[in-house]
Amino acid sequence: MTTTEPLLQVRNLKKYYPIRKGVIARTVGQVRAVDDVSFDVHPGETLGIVGESGCGKSTTGRAILRLETPTAGSVIFEGTDIATLSAGTMRRRRTDLQMVFQDPYSSLNPQIRIGDLLAEPLIAHHRLKRAAAQARAAEIIQVVGLPRLYLNRYPHELSGGQRQRVGIARALMLEPKLIVCDEPVSALDVSIQAQVLNLLKDLQGEFGLTYVFISHGLGAIKYISDRIVVMYLGKVMEVATTQEIFTAPRHPYTEILLDAYPEANPHLRDRPRIIVEGDVPSPAKPPAGCVFHTRCPSAQAICTTEIPRLSTDAHPVACHFPLLASKNGKVES
């Protein structure tokens, strides 16, 4: 869809957490939080990552920002693999990549006034004087829709929505190119969620930002994303434009997800509901073959043995029997 060079290329990213046990804390297994994930993010777009709780969305986001060291794979940002940069080089590089956290209560240091929270990135990176940094903070805080007066307040004196605006403002201070938003609205009151999503959209236009937007709910994802990555148990199931995902999903899992959110997808409402059977398997013991086969309504013998690879066409999907969408329902290929 886009012809420009990607801003970010995630290639075969893996993050395994060791499970330790016993006297010498020997590794007895691994949690495959992220297992061989690849996707591109193009400049100016919003890439949504969606999936159930525990499927590795946050871990992916944190690995992109190198808040986690990947077990394997590369994170290529503007042509450099930042997964292998030295700590010092990475630290300076962080001006280009920022993060907005899920919980606006715990993501702001309770001891520091909003003004100093916002000024600090400039002081740390650009050696600005406090006054100059504060002046810039005063501009940005208005951009995110808060009065300057809040600069003198402590985080606990603000509401959740206001705090999240501060979180966003802080991410903007260094004028980053890419912002990873990890469920930035799910901790907020429903009435506030739309306001914050709109703010993010407006800022994207104003500052030419690129977003990786993580959410487990399809509503926010649909509203804000240009393209969507669907994850399940640490793996990418499907990548497509928002429209394709919602009108012509190719992976049975995506279809099930859509089914669970009829309000996000009104035209599917009349179809018979697909019953999802079984629980999500543990990422410490992922099923052999396709990780989704234990719950897949259209699983065949091959699904239990062979891992489906992400197809390389215009609408990548990792399924042995991808769906072919039509207005009437689905046909197996």
Binding site: R94, L97, Q98, M99, P121, A124, G167
Partner: peptide, 14 residues
């Protein structure tokens, strides 16, 4: 483990 320390790391603080 708190997000505000993680935020500090993400912001590239020493």
């Amino acid at each position: 483990q708190t997000d505000y320390v993680q935020a500090g790391v993400a912001l590239g603080y020493s």
